[in-house]
């Protein structure tokens, strides 16, 4: 086995005299531990992604040969395709909704739950359960529930409750917030559990000290709880920002981007162009652009970190 290893990877060349064992341990072994997953990621993600960079500069239909067209796809995307801008705006709206509502709900629920002894475990479990449901099930369930001719809303509508005679998923003004609501139903409990975990890691004496200073609930939350869970909060803000540019499942299952493109986000555009419009090259260009947005988000965090923010 050792021989195989030596032939497989030169950095394992134990017989080379200049590689002392100590040096091996210091430099090669750490990389050996990350190598398998690194190779898999190169194979699955990076290689195909690099291929996609090339395809984004072709007129590839998704089938057969691809002709190089330079930056024509990007030109069309940025200057000629109105659906791109509208999809981008929808992603930003989505980002705004997910940076506020679920995080606020998670924080509120976690801080309400933290001091509770009786039934704490039950609440924590119950509020978390939606997170384990598959998006397909949640999407079908809620689409039925809020349909004005079916489900809970239909039941209310039948009894003449005002405002329930609207198909929220069928109106341009309400469709995107409604899908976000459904997605958030599944998501916020997960945040709550993370925040709660963070809060329970805060040393109790900090709260004692705040109390001795006469802090009220809000001051305690602001001055002790929030700073205490800052790492997890910042991490989730980063992940939310990234995921908001990639969101796909719920929108695709529920509306496929409709009506009238009112719930179309970038990932939906990619899917439609790649699999419905025979524009795989153009789809790749949108995908690359999405990645750039994500890159900007990450860069902002990296820069903040360099500037000494404890992220």
């Amino acid at each position: 086995m050792r021989d195989t290893a030596v032939q497989t990877h030169p950095s394992l060349a134990l017989h080379r005299p200049r590689w002392s064992r100590a040096r091996l341990r210091r430099h090669a072994v750490p990389w050996l531990f990350v190598l398998p997953i690194l190779l898999i990621n190169l194979l699955v993600v990076l290689g195909p992604a690099v291929a996609a960079v090339y395809y984004s500069m072709t007129d590839w239909s998704g089938i057969g040969a691809a002709d190089f067209v330079g930056l024509a796809n990007y030109q069309e995307l940025f200057f000629e395709d109105p659906s791109f801008l509208s999809a981008f705006v929808h992603n930003v709206v989505w980002l705004a909704m997910f940076l506020t509502v679920p995080i606020a709900m998670g924080l509120i629920a976690a801080s309400l739950l933290a001091p509770i002894r009786r039934g704490a475990l039950f609440f924590r479990l119950a509020l978390f359960i939606p997170y384990v449901l598959p998006s397909v099930v949640v999407a079908h369930l809620w689409s039925s529930l809020i349909h004005p001719d079916r489900g809970v809303v239909g039941w209310l509508n039948e009894r003449g409750v005002p405002g329930t005679d609207i198909a929220l998923l069928g109106r341009e003004s309400t469709v995107l917030p409604t899908i976000a609501f459904i997605d958030n139903w599944r998501w916020w409990g997960f945040l709550m559990v993370l925040f709660l975990a963070g809060m329970q890691n805060i040393p109790p004496d900090l709260f004692e000290a705040a109390r001795l200073d006469g802090a009220n609930r809000w001051q305690e939350f602001r001055d002790v709880t929030l700073p205490g869970i800052r790492p997890v909060l910042v991490f989730m803000i980063l992940m939310t920002s990234i995921w908001s540019f990639l969101t796909f499942d719920f929108i695709w299952i529920i509306t496929q981007g409709g009506p009238a493109g009112a719930s179309e986000v970038l990932s939906i555009l990619v899917f439609k162009n790649a699999f419905q419009n025979f524009e795989a090259g153009y789809a790749a260009a949108i995908g690359i652009t999405m990645s750039l947005f994500v890159g900007v988000v990450i860069s902002i965090f990296v820069v903040l970190r360099r500037r000494g923010w404890e992220i």
């Binding site: 086995m1 050792r2 290893a5 398998p36 190779l39």
Partner: peptide, 10 residues
């Protein structure tokens, strides 16, 4: 150690 790592790798 390295042997088993190599086994995984292989």
């Amino acid at each position: 150690g390295p042997q088993q790592l190599a086994a995984v790798l292989v």
